[in-house]
Design a binder for these strands. Sequence first.
DNA 1: TTGTAGGCGTTATCAG
DNA 2: CTGATAACGCCTACAA
Lengths: 333, 333
Amino acid sequence: MATIKDVAREAGVGLGTASRALNGSPDVSPSTRARVLAAAAALGYQRSAIARAFSRRRTNTLEILIPSFRHYLMMEILRGMEAALEPTGYSIVIRTIEQLAERDRVFAACCTRGRADGVLLIGITPTEELVERLTGDAFPIVLLEAAHPLLSSVTADHEAAMAGAVRHCIELGHRRIALVDRYDDPFTPQQPGRRQGGYRQELAAAGLELLPGYEQVTEFTPDAAAAALDTLLSLPVPPTAILSGSDLQALGLLDAARRRSLRVPEDLSIVGYTDIDLARYLGLTTVRVPMREIGRQGMQMLLTALDQPEDSPTRVQLASELVVRGTCGPPPG
Amino acid sequence: MATIKDVAREAGVGLGTASRALNGSPDVSPSTRARVLAAAAALGYQRSAIARAFSRRRTNTLEILIPSFRHYLMMEILRGMEAALEPTGYSIVIRTIEQLAERDRVFAACCTRGRADGVLLIGITPTEELVERLTGDAFPIVLLEAAHPLLSSVTADHEAAMAGAVRHCIELGHRRIALVDRYDDPFTPQQPGRRQGGYRQELAAAGLELLPGYEQVTEFTPDAAAAALDTLLSLPVPPTAILSGSDLQALGLLDAARRRSLRVPEDLSIVGYTDIDLARYLGLTTVRVPMREIGRQGMQMLLTALDQPEDSPTRVQLASELVVRGTCGPPPG
DNA sequence: TTGTAGGCGTTATCAG
DNA sequence: CTGATAACGCCTACAA
């Protein structure tokens, strides 16, 4: 592997000049530059990214922390990030944090100057300890689908979105509206999600009571949601409409309803959440969450923070939108 | 940021000793090691990954090249890779090659010792030029869902899988079986896919003629497939069964058939391909391609190649399996 | 078992 | 405009 030294020798110039020429510095005569470039081409020179990063103390790499590669949603976010990344020279290294136990270790290793120039956390809330270190260092970090008062973040307006879904059902005449939600943060399942908050608020605003057992928080899978449907339907006063925290869960509900020979939406209304590609083909009424845009804007935010360290955190909230299709209608009877 | 030098000073030992202690070398007395570790902890020392990589000429990073983050399948492959990666200390940097034009540049940059210790190509066939350089260097590389005689690879048995699907339809009584496929490699759409080969072979083996217009190769989307259905149904002799190259396309076919009030499978049989999570909930008869396993084995292969440079390429082909659900039945009449 | 010195490939600084 | 030279932080002989 040829080094810059070889190139310099081959071109008959000094090492510094070769470096400048290769990096497009203006302080080098055209003829010299041409000689250096020719030499580099002749030798098949490829500059060492590592040595460069080491010397410049800047890696041109961004680290992305995700809970896992499990969910399709991640793909959409990554796709949005990719779009923002494309015109830049940055690479992304993706690291999964499957276990809560790894979290702190990974945080410590990632969010430290040297390894990556910045970090993007998706759906993971940082520990207070990390936040403290980060804000002290002014280390570039952006949260996606998570938030902290001291850090920049991009999220969807989950409360408003779910409230809108509730309102839609109420307008159709429903009074017994249940929720089958999932946990926002896989690592802090105890805290109530933001969708849940919107659900409660809107119910209260309409003067409806939150019926016991109407809030089912399950795993993020169709099967778990199907089980929740069983629970809901065996309630003394079963719901006529069910809102779900994800399209995947809505899918499970749909499937379970079909197996019970319940017609949707005649016998039971179902609303999904997120609007994955497939929702359209299922005719699922759902909430469209701008996942790709969240990824794009989050990356964009990190990119600008890289150049001009932020004074104060930017917190963006993106609007969701109810997509009315065929799984939600007036209540039976 | 504390360096190893600081740690050494703090612990009152030499720099080399500190390095050895930190790296778990056996040639260091327990008491010294303890002092060094304590000093490191006290200083909050984090070793510089870059400097380490620079010095060892080994990055502990693997590069993954993918055409895009567009497809859900990628997620499954990544998930499998993650599983194989978990017990190792390797990081993965993912790079997308959206444009054919970027391909060579990216190849040149990635597949060169220094940046990453090895490369995994997903669904992308390398150029001959690259192969030549790679085999010369003995640079660790593994192809996933792509193949080359001189390189290690993991693929699914697409010919056999599609042949099996054809056979299934024939056994149900179908004689007019069409194919709505997609391109294997986004960058070389001209060459016929492997599924297509299996389709033709099996048709021929059963003594069935390949009817004109029966092979529709479309984009990898439900809408494109829906359009293909229109074309197929307007043929003088329309098919009674349609095999598709992806579940996404099968979904489009299903949707288009429903819009035309065709019952599936009574009026028309449809077979998907890949068996994405959702296929189950749609009751889609499909071919299960072990995507996650492809990712896992591919990564495993790369990992072993890293330690013991391979003499000759390993080429693994994983078996697919027909999953019979509800979208394929006997032909009408 | 420990300390010292050399080197990894670049970039940046500073005279010329 | 150009050429030496000093970092960058770590690892690894080699010598003690």
